[in-house]
């Protein structure tokens, strides 16, 4: 039983959510938002998608295994923590540079890592549960 309208909405919802999540991630330092919120938001897009299309479709959509997404997130955060060592600073010291008017620094990288990890985590949990518990009718 396919429902075309629902499928369209779910696909649209996914992209809107990812876009909105990225927006929240980038502005998170100055306004409400940040890695955690953005991560859950993006994942909820995938959640909707998974409910409509099944978990396999989600896995196809994200191409790589969610485990690697989690790993990437953790790695990004770790890298941002390690970078300051090369400047002779204690780990996790924030390093800031400016790109035009915008401040860019390791905390942003860290936040991105959090975002990627949270997204990957929820996708991984959802797809696993759906798969094992046979929700892909």
């Amino acid at each position: 039983m396919r429902n075309l309208i629902l499928e369209k909405i779910a696909t649209l919802f996914l992209y809107v959510m990812i876009g909105f999540a990225l927006f929240l991630l980038l502005r998170g330092h100055n306004s409400p938002g940040g890695g955690f919120i953005a991560g859950i938001l993006a994942a909820s897009g995938f959640l909707m998608y998974a409910i409509v299309f099944g978990s396999e479709a989600v896995l196809k959509k994200i191409v790589v295994n969610p485990r690697y997404i989690i790993g990437t997130g953790l790695l990004l955060s770790l890298i941002s923590a390690i970078i300051p060592i090369f400047w002779g600073l204690p780990p996790m010291t924030a390093i800031w540079g400016t790109l035009g008017k915008i401040h860019v620094g390791t905390p942003l990288l860290f936040d991105t890592g959090v975002f990627v990890l949270v997204t990957g985590m929820i996708i991984s949990i959802i797809t696993n549960i759906m798969d094992v518990l046979k929700w892909n009718s």
């Binding site: 998170g28 330092h29 100055n30 938002g33 905390p107 936040d111």
Partner: peptide, 14 residues
């Protein structure tokens, strides 16, 4: 020091 106006987020990531 943290270049952010959202204090909660600055605490979290910095």
């Amino acid at each position: 020091k943290g270049h952010g106006r959202n204090i909660v987020n600055v605490i979290l990531v910095d």
